[in-house]
Design a protein around this nucleic acid. Sequence first.
DNA 1: CGTTCAGTTGACGCGGTTCAATCGAAGTGG
DNA 2: CCACTTCGATTGAACCGCGTCAACTGAACG
Lengths: 265, 265
Amino acid sequence: MSVSARTNGRFGSSDGAMLLRRLTRLADLLPHEIKVVRGARANVEEVAAGTQLFAEGDHLNRVSLVVSGWACHQRILSDGRRQIFGFALPGDLLGPWCRASTIAQTTAVMLKSGRIADVTFMRDLLLDAPQRFPGLTSALASLQSLHEGYLLNHLVRLGRQTAYERVASLLLELNHRSAAVGLVQGISSPLPLTQEILADALGLSIVHINRTLQQLRRDGLLDVRGSYLQLLDADQLTAIAEFQPPSTEASTEDWRDFRIAAQVR
Amino acid sequence: MSVSARTNGRFGSSDGAMLLRRLTRLADLLPHEIKVVRGARANVEEVAAGTQLFAEGDHLNRVSLVVSGWACHQRILSDGRRQIFGFALPGDLLGPWCRASTIAQTTAVMLKSGRIADVTFMRDLLLDAPQRFPGLTSALASLQSLHEGYLLNHLVRLGRQTAYERVASLLLELNHRSAAVGLVQGISSPLPLTQEILADALGLSIVHINRTLQQLRRDGLLDVRGSYLQLLDADQLTAIAEFQPPSTEASTEDWRDFRIAAQVR
DNA sequence: CGTTCAGTTGACGCGGTTCAATCGAAGTGG
DNA sequence: CCACTTCGATTGAACCGCGTCAACTGAACG
């Protein structure tokens, strides 16, 4: 596992825009919330694939934004078996973004090199004065719900689905999440994951992942070429996997109630 | 699936004591926090086994305390395959206790009849004025972390452990959780679960759960009699399952920092 | 006293693992 | 620029953990 080559940089306008675009898709932000996010200065690091961002048991305070690259949460058993809990795509957060510091329950590792921004300031705003930032609160809560939903979907895959269904379901989810942050072009979405990584996520062997992907390809449902995934028959895949993206939670009404409550005070 | 026979009751002193004991083990409560919890009046219902408490997609606002009985979170696929995500023991909460209302991502079902108290008031206190209740905030956040940890442990079981390890790990966890709420007597802890339920939690068939339990019994590690579990060799079981209970998170220092911050304001 | 439900057992088969070898592409050092 | 290595993907053959099917038991219940 290589050590990262880290170069410090500043939260550029494009980095801030990515965060803002992500948040505004999750909840409506008030003008001053937009200003706070846009005006923030965050450290940005270039991080190499294989770099460990934090380990299980670490005392975690920092909240990080994946600006580019992919990461994952994982745990490794004493004999080397690895379970990947989930992935962090560009636009996702790592660390305790909905509460104060915690002890990490997973190890986070970069799977594809990219840029990581420190956005702890955002969480700290909410801890200090949640009433002033109802939109941010709602957006981060939605993000939390989404990630809970991903975990639950993953449990169903591992517990009750066949290899064929598991692969279909995970690839649909990753495509869905890529689409939500504008990474999908047509039927082609990025998939910077080796078959070994898919295997460790889906509780299968590398060999069987390989054969299952071939089967899906032969059935004309999808194609994995290089580090891109092509969804050739998304409808049929959705049916096979019984895939349902997690609800974005906080409906507009909820969040409006919350905003009104905040204004009254 | 039977419908519940519901009889309304009031939050008795023993119900309030159970909640308070649970919370004070998770964080130190300030005097006025203790008073608020103790003085609360909550509706309590008697709920039969098999009752559905809420379903996936439901709009959830209410926060419920399991006073007695056991419940679970689950999802069912179209062909009947069921995955149980986790269990709710006496002292556990159901519903959105760390945020405002959400859309349920799981279905909750009573596995053993018991009493369910409505403790939504507690969540609402925190939403209104988190600064006034740092201890409660911390306790509920710890509870959240614990449940996240249970989900992660469960993912490892389903993804990367053998049937033998899965059963050992789950039973250790349930014993551990039972102990935390004072339900364990000696080596004997309650286990009001059928083999079918264990199978649906662990992603195995009933038949194989049965054989695995027999193997564990033959190996002198544990015994399941009636609705009780006897741990005969907890150390060896812990080694086999590589079981580690989730960290209780918020260490005393964290929470003290938080309290000081709250007092300054 | 029949019915239902949880647990138990045996026989058999399949989905997925393991082992081992091969291949191509991408470095890497001389 | 070419051997040498490394890494990810691929393939075949043998094996096995666990599922499926089906039958049977005992306890609880009305």
